[in-house]
């Protein structure tokens, strides 16, 4: 890809759009999460601000912006303030190769999934920095958990995605979507149900959501690595959590659920519908299950998901090679 002026402008515009998407997504997801949680618990959720509480998330973000930044003593200043920023900005890049239509991609790189997997590893760096820099024992424990969890769950995730890559023969997300059809039985989830399941589990683990929210386990570590963050610092962690969730849901939609293709009419709306369906599912399991223990979390990964994903990969490779 040659980096001409037009291309460059395209990326800048895309970046701005992605920022808007991230913020908008956080606002929507806060509302969706609180409403869904409320309905599951048989209460209305937010309903005071605006019609049916629709402005609640806006109010929340205003509150976070206006809050005093309370800084603990004896912190490492640079790392303390770097961590939330580092959590937020790498996510921007990750959205660039996501295809919303056949030609509706910010940066159509051939190795799109490679880019995403490479940069998503940066998120955990911010977690460990936050936990380390804030001079808090809960933070340290949370950071330690975050690292071992992220390292563990990235592997089966990659393996599951590789199975699709083997089938398609391409690392480009657009190419992968193009190889799937419009109707559900033409999607990759039908040919690779095990990979989809493994991806779904490691997606929850990778985004630190319940029941795998060990780094911020509330009843054990109060808030884990972001215990000492308030105001904007916390808001940035929050934003990046939802942005990460949206990203893995987009990847899930593109890899397994036919991406922007859908019945009747292809288009970017299908991408959003599918991604948000995955997110609602993540929200749903969060408000249903208790949390696993840390050794169990790693056991699930190393003893079950990893062997299963390797097996799945082998079988896929053999089938692709010989049939």
């Amino acid at each position: 890809m040659d980096l001409s002026i037009a291309n460059f402008a395209q990326i800048i515009i895309a970046c701005l759009l992605v920022i808007a998407l991230m913020v908008g997504n956080a606002v929507v997801m806060v509302y969706v999460e609180r409403k869904a949680c409320g309905f599951i618990q048989r209460r209305p959720g937010p309903y005071e601000v605006g019609p049916r509480g629709i402005l609640q998330a806006v109010c929340d973000s205003m509150k976070l912006l206006g809050k005093q930044i309370y800084v603990p003593g004896n912190i490492d200043w640079i790392l303390y303030f770097l961590a939330p920023v580092l959590a937020f900005f790498p996510v921007l890049l990750l959205y660039l190769p996501i295809p919303f239509g056949r030609h509706l991609t910010a940066m159509n790189v051939d190795e799109g999934i490679l880019l995403i997997l490479a940069f998503s590893g940066l998120g955990v760096v911010s977690n460990i920095l936050a936990g380390w820099a804030s001079n808090n024992k809960y933070g340290i424990l949370g950071a330690a958990r975050a690292v071992s969890q992220a390292v563990a769950y990235e592997i089966p995730m990659i393996m599951a995605l590789l199975a699709i890559v083997f089938l398609t023969g391409s690392l480009s997300l657009t190419e992968i979507v193009e190889r799937q059809g419009s109707w559900p039985w033409q999607w990759n989830i039908v040919v690779q149900p095990l990979a989809f399941f493994i991806y779904l589990v490691s997606l929850v683990g990778e985004t630190n959501r319940a029941p795998f929210d060990l780094p911020e386990a509330e009843s054990e570590l109060t808030a884990g690595f972001h215990t000492e963050y308030s105001g904007m610092g916390f808001a940035l962690f929050f934003l990046s959590e939802y942005a990460n969730m949206l990203l893995v849901s987009f990847v899930c939609a593109a890899f397994f659920l036919g991406g922007y293709k859908g019945p009747f009419m292809d288009g970017f709306w299908w991408m959003f519908i599918k991604a948000y369906a995955v997110m609602v599912f993540i929200v749903w399991i969060r408000w249903t299950f208790p949390r696993v223990r840390f050794d169990q979390l790693l056991n699930i990964n190393w003893r079950w998901l990893l062997p299963l994903s390797i097996l799945n990969l082998w079988v896929t490779a053999v089938i692709v090679r010989f049939i």
Binding site: I40, R42, W284, T288
Partner: peptide
């Protein structure tokens, strides 16, 4: 058992609320 759990919360999601506004 996880699927059963999801079905329980899913059912409550769709059933009417219990709180008094």
């Amino acid at each position: 058992s996880l699927v059963v759990g999801l079905s329980v919360t899913g059912r409550f999601f769709l059933s009417p609320q219990k709180t008094v506004h």
